[in-house]
Amino acid sequence: MMELICPAGTPAALRTAVDAGADAVYCGFADATNARNFPGLNFNRREMSEGIAYAHRSRAKVLVAINTFPAAGAQELWYSAVDDAVAAGADALIIADVGLIDHAARTHPRQRLHLSVQAAASNPDAIGFYVRRFGIKRVVLPRVLTVSEIAAITRAIECETEVFIFGGLCVMAEGRCSLSSHVTGQSPNMNGVCSPASHVVYREEAGTLVSRLGDFTINRFAKGEPAAYPTLCKGRFKTSLGSGYLFEDPVSLDAAAILPSLRAAGVAALKIEGRQRSRAYIEGVVRGFREQLDALEAGEKPPADRLAALTEGQNSTLGAYRKNWR
């Protein structure tokens, strides 16, 4: 049975995810060691220990994301995150940086390690390197692969695969994208923030919502038009070749319709994005997918997908899973 991996940005969200049927919850410390380093979010050391204990009481796992890239000369913050997550009883660490993986594998040889999507390992050669060299047990695949590509990779590698099924849709080479750095000087890779809130400005202009990131207008939403995050890759731009969403539309991934295909592809775990979202989101999405997976396992008709209201831009897509633009 495929595992349902759910996000938690706060201890309350972790408890909500566990209670709603998560097989595992992923979360991070409240610092630059994880890729959701947002104000008011994440766990201190005590909260992490208590959260893991809570999850384990319900036989759920906790995967600790330490998935940013350590800054040169400041590795101690990342090393201590690894040590503290292990001490807290984490079931796995999700890591992206090859040096940090090496450190974790050598320092805690019995600790289960997962390769973060931020490592951008998207072919059997790259994944095989991490498996052979560091004993990685699972890889989180980038959101740019088709289901058949996922199946081929899963067959060719000697570790489990985990794929995203819902939430924010990043179509960049994750861990390598510099768009946010280009405008704000900060990125998810180094600082744990894509389009950091400190650089975001929203302004209402006669019913039109204008979103800005740093010195750039990212979008204008007409009255009543669904809004979106002010991320550069989801902005509307004018170029000499035309205007519009050049990189991607502001939509959320929703792979509920292809869960049987992902199972047939050999995927071990299904990941929901959204550590920055509220308990209401966690409750709705986790419970929704729990029902979908239980129906799938029982061979029953899946319940209707009711998650549209929680999607960015109030639109959803199967993204690259059904890639037909090339």
Binding site: L169, V251, T311, Q314
Partner: peptide, 8 residues
Amino acid sequence: VLQGADCA
């Protein structure tokens, strides 16, 4: 750019 279906 991505093939999406409009949702309710």
